[in-house]
Amino acid sequence: MREKILVVDDDEKITSMLRRGLAFEGYRVLSARNGQEGLALAGQEHPDLIILDIMMPVLDGWEVCRRLREADLRMPVLMLTAKDEVSDRVRGLDTGADDYLVKPFALEELLARVRALLRRHKDAGTDSAEPSKHRLHYEDLTLDLDSREAFRGERAMELTAKEFDLLHLFMSNPRRVLSRDVLMDKIWGIDYSGESNVLEVYVAMLRQKLEEGGEPRIIQTVRGAGYVLKGERA
């Protein structure tokens, strides 16, 4: 079955270009002209991926993404926007977006990111279906792969889809140093061509959530090598 992609953008020229380009690649394409319409279509059609503009009437892309995640709709979201400030990119990622592409963009780059997001989402779904790995534990961390919930001790943490996938990878490889290349390949895919510091941004956001209750750092930086999940008792 062909993957179904929902384009939510009030710019008719961009929407038309995306519809043609995605359809040519074999995807089924739905479109919405504003955030409210896009949110409704996402709930009705359950697309495999959403391309979401930020600056839209009725509901902006940040609010749409936040509501999608609140409704436990976990399809990948690629944010498409003219905003290029780091704070805007972080805000988009923190609301649950999986990737971020700044206008103007090349269609080839967008298609590469779409392929990477769809592949990662499919792989994550396959991994979480393993019956012997419903929950992962490391020290005071618990990751529930069925409900996609994360806990540090008794404290629940609200993680974005990518933060969850990143923590899942760390918890599947405790005390093992994971290089930047391995982390980028496993979480964003080998053909990712977006922001060069996306991994550092996500590690910083994940650490903030892991440590916001005053807990000690558990994701350590290994200078020149990568990152490792290693607590004080390791």
Rank of each mutant, 00 (worst) to 15 (best):
M1G: 12
M1L: 05
E3F: 12
K4C: 15
K4R: 15
D9F: 01
D9S: 02
K13E: 15
L18P: 04
L18E: 05
L18Y: 02
L18Q: 04
G21K: 12
G21I: 13
E25R: 15
G26P: 06
Y27N: 05
S31M: 11
R33C: 07
E37P: 09
L39N: 09
L39I: 09
L39Q: 12
L41Y: 03
Q44K: 11
E45Q: 14
I50Q: 07
L52Q: 14
D53A: 10
M55A: 13
L59Y: 09
G61H: 05
W62A: 13
R66K: 09
L68P: 04
E70Y: 08
A71M: 09
A71W: 10
D72P: 00
D72Q: 11
L73A: 04
R74K: 07
R74H: 08
R74F: 04
P76D: 03
L78Y: 04
L78D: 01
L80V: 15
T81I: 03
E85W: 09
V86R: 13
R89F: 02
V90I: 14
L93F: 06
D99P: 12
L101Q: 10
V102W: 05
F105W: 04
L107T: 11
E109P: 02
L110Q: 07
L110N: 07
L111Y: 06
A112G: 06
R115W: 10
A116D: 09
L117E: 05
L118K: 06
R119K: 13
R119L: 11
H121E: 10
H121V: 03
T126F: 02
D127K: 14
D127P: 00
A129F: 01
E130S: 09
H134I: 14
Y138S: 14
E139Y: 13
T142P: 11
D144P: 12
S147D: 15
R148H: 11
A156F: 11
A156H: 13
E158T: 08
E163K: 00
E163I: 00
E163S: 00
F164R: 01
D165I: 01
D165S: 04
L166C: 01
L166N: 00
H168A: 02
N173V: 05
V177F: 13
V177W: 12
R180K: 11
V182S: 01
M184Q: 13
K186E: 12
G189I: 15
G189P: 07
D191Q: 06
D191R: 12
S193D: 10
G194V: 07
S196F: 04
N197H: 04
L199P: 08
M205C: 03
M205F: 06
M205R: 13
L206R: 00
L206W: 00
Q208D: 08
L210V: 00
G214T: 08
P216A: 12
I218D: 00
I218M: 06
T221R: 13
T221E: 10
T221A: 09
A225I: 06
G226W: 03
L229D: 09
K230G: 02
E232D: 08
R233W: 14
A234P: 02
A234Q: 14
